[in-house]
Structures are given as structure tokens and as C-alpha cells.
Nucleic acid binder design. Structure first.
Lengths: 186, 186
DNA sequence: AGTCCATGTGTATCAGCGTACACATGGAGT
DNA sequence: ACTCCATGTGTACGCTGATACACATGGACT
């Protein structure tokens, strides 16, 4: 029907793909399933993305968020990080490519690598640098950075993989904020 | 060949199944793959476990560890928990049914539920109770328990899903111990 | 030695998946 | 009005996965 707009159709397919991959991983998701959800024939997926593999690849292109959480006093680091996380979870529309990567990490080794690399670059390393620059000894900074990183990943996993119930945004912010601050200050 | 011992064969199948499910989830693993790895015809899986589903079910039966980590002073809680975790990771042979549950959580909803329930019962709740009994206000105890729980899950995910490198057992113990203690003490 | 059942295999079947190939059709440009 | 290509579909095909069915065989027991 008629909407005969290639760009929009592509986007619809991509959205549905991300949604299903984010929920069920790679193998368990079928091309036909995605096509049906997008209201399209399976062939279009082959045409537009070169096949299931290409579609998956396209669905995992992660937009790197410019994080300003690492500018400012350490006393408010927890608050800034918490705000950034809460916003990412409650504010963003559509499924997170990072979740797709985590879900598919067992079936596609490169997904695990990509996710690990992303977390290293965008969480672990910046944290480490920030803490060190705030006057903390290198080894200790590394240790605390790893703790915060693991904590955040754990919360994310609890919430998105295991469907955790954790109150509203404000409550979540408070909890994340104080916990992260605690880990940062030692 | 020749070993014609039903119990042993069953166990071999089960071990291989756990290994593959723990690595790749459910759908991506094939009955033939497990059978080959176990040196057996696929039919035996149908016969002994009633099919792929039954095998998965059998592979996720988790032996509940009697935890003594919650006996003792709070000042050493981190150390006791860390020891328990390290031992579980370095000491145990074979793959962890809990990892199977986590990996399959997207493809089999009941796996996600089972894992969440297990963590609630064996991590979150005991922690909450322990902290409260050690004289901490209820809401605060709940908050700290959730923090420790999420942190441990995060470390586990980083390590097992994303193949984290984190030194030897002793080093890991120290880090876990101090971090958990920090979260417990507030 | 002979019987019989637990233990295991070879082959066939059926369904579903990904995708290639031929075909339809709307709509922009002339 | 006509052409033509981008956009989309219907059908078919090969492959693989799970499992059902018929068959083989070792070894415990008489």
C-alpha cells in the first residue's frame, strides 16, 4: 500500500529488526517474522540489506552518544551519570542497538567483541581517566572504574534482560546516583 | 562404541548440552551438534530426554548451593561473598546452569523468569534480610542489597558473556571483596 | 547355548528457513 | 499518453533441523 517510499520502508524494516533482535537474539528471529511485522515481503529484506546478515549488521550500528557526564566535579559524578542513564532508558525511542549486541553475543562472536569494545571505550576508559585526573591513584582509579562499569551493566541486565521492576525515573535516579557516587568516592 | 552405559551416556549428553546452550543460547544450538559432541546418535536425545525441549529443561536444573555467606559479622561480608563467587567461578567444573538460563532468556521466557526468581531468592532477598538484621533501616537495606546484587550480576556478565579478562583468583577476590563491602557499609 | 530387552543406529519424513528468479505496478519524466 | 525504472510481490528451490520408524547388537539371565 502504496506507500511506495523506499527510505521509509527501509526504516520500518530496520526498526522491526532491531526490536526482534533485541528481544530474541539472532537465530531465533526469522526474516519472514520481521517482514510480516514491517508489512512487507521477505524479499525486500534481501534486496535492501543483502539478506539476514546484512540486516543484523545494519541493526547494530550504534550511534555514539556524546557524553558530557565526565565534565564537572567528582562530587556530582554519580548524579550526572545517573541522569544520563535514566534518560537513555526512559527517553529514547526504539530499541537500543547495544541490547541487540548483548542478546546476540552468544551466537555472533563479533557482537560480543563489539559490545565489549564499546563499553571499554565509552564507559571503562573514560571512568578510569576521570577518576585518575580527579587525584586518585592509578590502580585505585582502575578498580573503582571497573566497579562502576560492572554495576551499571548489572543494573541494565537486571532491567532489560530479566525484566526488573524498579520504580519510576526519579527513584531510579536517586538510587543510581548514590550508589555510583559511593563507588567513585571509595 | 561399546561403552553401553545408559547413565554415563545420558550424563555425557547433558554435559555437552549445557556447554553449548551456555555458549550459544537455545535456537542456535542443534540436536545433531550436541549428539556429535557427545559421540552419539541424535535419536538418543529424543529417547532419553524426549527431544530438544526436554534436554534444555534437564540442562537448566540448577543445584541450589547452600550458602553460608550470610553467617557472620558484616565487616567481613564482602570477603565471604567474594570467596563464594570466586570459588563458584574457578572451582566448579562444567558450565553453570545459571549461565544457560541467562543466555536463553531471550528465546525462552520461562528461562528469564527462572533466573530472575533464582536471583531474587538467593541473592537479593538474603542480602536484604542480612543487612536489615545487621541494624540497617529497611529502605536503605533494600537499596544496598539491590546495589550489591546488580554489581555481582554485572561482573558475571562482563566476565562470562563479554569475556572479560580480570586477573587471577586472588586479585579478583580482593576487588570483589572491597567493592561489595563498600556497597554494604554505605 | 539360547533368549530377550536395554542400548544404540540408519534412513526417512516433514516443516520451516533463507533466498533466487520471474513477474507486477505505481508514478515520475518526457 | 507513453515509457521506463524504482519499488514491491508470488512462487519455487535447496538446505537444515527435529524427530518418527524400523532395525541392529551387546550382554545379563536362564
Amino acid at each position: 500500500m502504496t506507500s511506495r517510499d523506499a527510505a521509509a520502508t527501509k526504516q520500518r524494516i530496520l526498526d522491526q529488526a532491531r526490536g526482534q533482535f533485541a528481544q530474541h537474539g539472532y537465530t531465533a528471529v526469522t526474516v519472514k517474522g520481521i517482514a510480516d511485522a514491517a508489512g512487507v515481503s521477505p524479499n525486500l529484506i534481501t534486496r535492501y540489506f543483502g539478506g539476514k546478515d546484512g540486516l543484523f549488521l545494519a541493526a547494530t550500528q550504534v550511534a555514539i552518544p556524546v557524553s558530557d557526564s565526565f565534565d564537572g566535579e567528582r562530587s556530582a559524578l554519580g548524579s550526572r551519570l545517573a541522569a544520563s542513564i535514566v534518560q537513555r532508558w526512559f527517553g529514547t525511542h526504539g530499541d537500543d542497538p547495544l541490547l541487540v549486541l548483548q542478546r546476540a553475543s552468544g551466537e555472533r562472536p563479533e557482537a560480543a567483541e563489539a559490545l565489549a569494545a564499546f563499553l571499554d571505550e565509552n564507559s571503562l576508559e573514560p571512568l578510569h581517566r576521570y577518576l585518575r585526573e580527579s587525584g586518585i591513584d592509578d590502580a585505585e582509579a582502575r578498580s573503582r572504574a571497573a566497579a562502576i562499569d560492572a554495576f551499571v551493566l548489572g543494573v541494565s541486565t537486571r532491567r532489560r534482560i530479566l525484566r526488573w521492576q524498579l520504580g519510576d525515573a526519579a527513584e531510579l535516579h536517586t538510587w543510581l546516583s548514590t550508589t555510583i557516587q559511593r563507588l567513585a568516592d571509595g
